[in-house]
Structures are given as C-alpha cells and as structure tokens.
C-alpha cells in the first residue's frame, strides 16, 4: 500500500474538518479525492504531507508514518499546493534549480522524469514565474514537485482556475507520470475529472461518502435519470420542484436531471403536467447517471 489512513480525525477549534477517515491508496494508483470546497481535502493533504498533525488516527505514506518518520516522507513525496506557491520574482529555471538544490539533487539528475513537462516551458526558462500564464505556472509547479523523483505525488486541486485545454493536457501528463511508477493522490472539485482516476473517494463535510472506481460508483446510482429540456429553463425547474412525485431536480448544462419517487413512472404523465404548466418544447429522455449525479444523491 502506498498510502494508508486509519481513523484520521482533525478539528480546528470547534469545526470538525475530518471525521474518522480511513482509506488506502494502492501502489502506482491514480487516486482522486472528489468533493466540494470546504470538504476537508486540503486538510487531508496537509496531514499526509506532514504539515499538520491529526488529532486522532494514524497514517502511512510510502511505508513511513506521518508523525514518526516525517523526515523520510519529506524526501519521498512531492506536494503541489492548491495555491501557486513558487517564487514569482525568480525565473522558471531558478525556481526549478532552487527546489532541486534544497532536495539535494540537480536538474540533470532527474531530468528524464520531468522532461515531458519541462520542455513545454523551457522556451520561457528565463521568464519570471509571476509572468507565466496559468497553465504554464501549473507545469512549472508540477516540475518543481517532481524534481526529486518522489514516490508519491500529492496534487491539491491542480486544475482549479486552469483553462479546459490545459486541464486536459494536465491530466494526460498525470497519466504518463503514473506509467513511470508514481502513486498520485489528486483532489478536484470537478466531477468530470473524477472519471479519469483509477479510483475515487467522494468526500463531503469531512466524511468519505463512497470509495470505488468511477464506473462502479455510477452503477450504485439507484434510480433512472431523465434529461428534461424546455424553452424556459427557470420555469421548468420551478415546475419540476413543485411536481408531487419529484425526487430530485438538478440543472445540468442545458437540461435538468430529474428522478421520480415512483417505480412505475410514466413519461407521458410528466410531459402532460409540464405542458399544463405552460412550458413549450418539452423533451424527456432517460440518460446514464454521472459521478455528479451520484455525488448529489449521496450528499443528499
């Protein structure tokens, strides 16, 4: 096991940030921590990277205890905090060299590992980090977190505030790093990214709701979901919420995801109801549940 957590709890004064969290991340796994802001993801990361002590429970990273062997962990993990935290007034190359030096290594020694990522920002190596675009900052931060060849990589919301193209690229890079034998724990509030992980843990209010592969998690969804569209979206949501048999109503892109309380649900009943509510262009189709639907259902 690469990462093991047993009954980890942590409170900040009266706020319970983590409540009895236990899970395991296998060697060479790409594990996703999915949850909204304030779910406790960053606290969990800070405990695993030895920046914070848990109130209760034990945790192991790469075979080392987070409290007793914190020194060994610092040698063996890479951490990329959610907030860009490199020196904005140093150049790309100076930042990388700085982190290589304090890890007691050199850029040349582990260049192989970061090559794929670093070549993309190498043309700008004399530019100050503060002047880079969001996507390039991410690449530099990832390079810095990898420069000492860590066994485990922690990425706290690496794609928050990054454009869709860079996000996609970033996940491709993660996949390639995984192939090089690095265990990756990544957190994200984006449900679409969850599908790219080997396994995911859904987390909310400091509690783990479910841990499984993305496919299996979706299968757990107990009901049939319907994509409902109409010309007046706002009125549609109001009407669906007012419908006596409605179970859940969530806006989802240009449609509304709707589930019904009844098992013998008739599409036409609903259509008639909506048309009686003066809605035009009503369309109803059944659809596959997504991780977001599952999360909403579990978080209910």
């Amino acid at each position: 096991m690469s990462i093991t957590l047993q009954h980890i709890s942590k409170s900040y004064k009266k706020v319970e940030a983590l409540k009895d969290i236990s899970f395991e991340v296998k060697e060479n796994e790409l594990f996703g921590l999915i949850g909204p802001d304030g779910a406790g993801k960053t606290t969990l990361f800070r405990i695993l990277t030895t920046l914070l002590f848990a109130d209760e429970g034990t945790a192991n990273v790469a075979g080392f205890d987070v409290v007793k062997d914190y020194k060994a962990i610092r040698q063996n993990v890479g951490y990329m905090p959610g907030k860009f935290s490199l020196y904005q007034d140093l150049t790309v190359e100076e930042n990388l060299k700085f982190f290589a030096t304090i890890f007691g290594t050199t850029i040349d020694e582990n260049y192989e590992l970061i090559k794929d990522i670093y070549v993309q920002i190498e043309p700008f190596k004399n530019r100050r980090a503060g002047k880079l675009s969001g996507g390039m900052k991410q690449k530099l931060a990832l390079s810095c977190a990898l420069i000492h060849k860590p066994k485990v990589l922690f990425l706290d919301e690496p794609t928050t505030g990054v454009d869709p193209v860079s996000r996609k690229e970033f996940w491709e890079m993660l996949k390639r790093l995984q192939q090089k034998g690095i265990t990756i724990l990544v957190s994200t509030p984006y449900m679409d990214e969850a599908a790219l992980c080997d396994r995911i843990a859904l987390i909310q209010d400091g509690k783990i709701l479910k841990i499984d592969t993305p496919e299996a998690i979706v299968k757990h969804y107990p009901k049939t979901i319907y994509n409902i569209g109409a010309n007046n979206m706002y009125q549609l949501i109001l009407s669906l919420n007012a419908y006596e048999h409605s179970y859940s109503v969530y806006p989802f892109g240009e449609f509304v995801h709707y589930t019904d309380q009844r098992t013998n649900f008739e599409l036409n009943d609903l259509k008639k109801y909506l048309e009686a509510e003066n809605l035009t262009g009503v369309s109803i189709q059944s659809t596959k549940p997504t991780i977001e639907d599952t999360f909403m259902e579990l978080a209910k």
Binding site: T49, R74, Q75, V77, F84, S85, F99, I102, F103, G104
Partner: peptide, 13 residues
C-alpha cells in the same frame, strides 16, 4: 503570505 513557505516545509531542508 505567498505560500512558498508551505512548499519549503515539505522539503527535507
């Protein structure tokens, strides 16, 4: 303030 201390704290320095 700029968050670099956190990054440095996880290094073996």
């Amino acid at each position: 303030e700029i968050g670099t201390l956190e990054q440095i704290n996880v290094t073996p320095i």
